[in-house]
């Protein structure tokens, strides 16, 4: 092993309750320039294939704390069964399900009670989370943002706009997209479109390091223990004589 910089550094560096921010918080009017994500005004726009803005809302971005990640269980979750006693029974085994990496999420919390105002009718193709690094626009009032970014009078191409943004995957409630909607076809007469979750969480699973093999490595270490299995049920382990 060599040095490992853990993704929790994102919180340590940017959260207002941690030393990196506390140590300068009343000393600099420019403290906001030392943060990239935490407490930034952000604009969420949902566009069709021609970059027409279908829906938009404002809110704030954070690094979320106090919970393990909620990544795709199949890609990142580690499950294991282990023996807790010498009883010759299934009850001698316990299971731990969906252990997740301790990596923080980039969280966007919309201000408007999670309804996204509709600007045009059409079919959702893409979504972008645009952050205001300089904190000149409002976290609450979308009218303070340049109207061409959110009003939908003309197509808006964020990729050439010069703003910092993140493209979000979009899908229906059944999908595993970042941004899940009750419907991808929106009719402006509906007034609002519902997001499925109260927050939007995005995880960067290869931040600072390639963690692609971490799940397999953790499972291999668990499976190197005689009476632990990441694949077998208690009954299967009992039947196998473990």
């Amino acid at each position: 092993m060599s040095l490992v910089i853990h993704p929790v550094v994102l919180i340590a560096a940017e959260n207002r309750t941690r030393y990196a921010q506390l140590s300068i918080h009343e000393s600099s009017r420019d403290i906001h320039l030392t943060r990239k994500i935490e407490y930034k005004p952000a604009l969420l726009i949902v566009v069709d294939a021609q970059n027409n803005v279908l829906a938009s809302t404002v809110g704030t971005t954070y690094w979320s704390t106090k919970e393990r990640s909620n990544l795709s269980p199949s890609q990142h979750g580690v499950n294991f069964t282990y023996r807790t006693s010498n009883a010759d029974a299934v009850t001698a085994f316990s299971q731990t399900v969906n252990l997740q990496p301790l990596t923080p999420a980039l969280r966007f919390t919309p201000y408007q009670d999670f309804d996204v105002a509709l600007r045009n009718s059409g079919t959702i193709a893409n979504a972008y989370l645009i952050t205001d690094r300089n904190e000149q626009y409002s976290r609450i009032d979308i009218e303070t943002w340049p109207s061409e970014m959110w009003r939908g009078d003309e197509p808006f191409d964020v990729t050439t706009s010069g703003y910092k943004y993140l493209e979000l995957t979009v899908g229906t409630e059944q999908s595993d997209a970042t941004l899940r909607f009750s419907s991808l076809d929106v009719d402006q007469n509906d007034q609002v479109i519902k997001l499925i979750e109260p927050h939007i969480n995005v995880y960067f699973t290869n931040f600072l390091r390639d963690w692609s093999n971490a799940k397999a490595e953790l499972e291999a270490r668990l499976n190197s223990i005689e009476s632990v299995s990441t694949t077998q049920s208690p009954q299967e382990m009992l039947d196998a004589g473990l």
Partner: peptide
Amino acid sequence: MSDQGAPRLETLLNKQDLQEILHGWG
């Protein structure tokens, strides 16, 4: 819930940004 890998991160946080985050902590 979502897993967005590093290449897509670039438009929001580039290498320079990440270095500044690390630097700000350390």
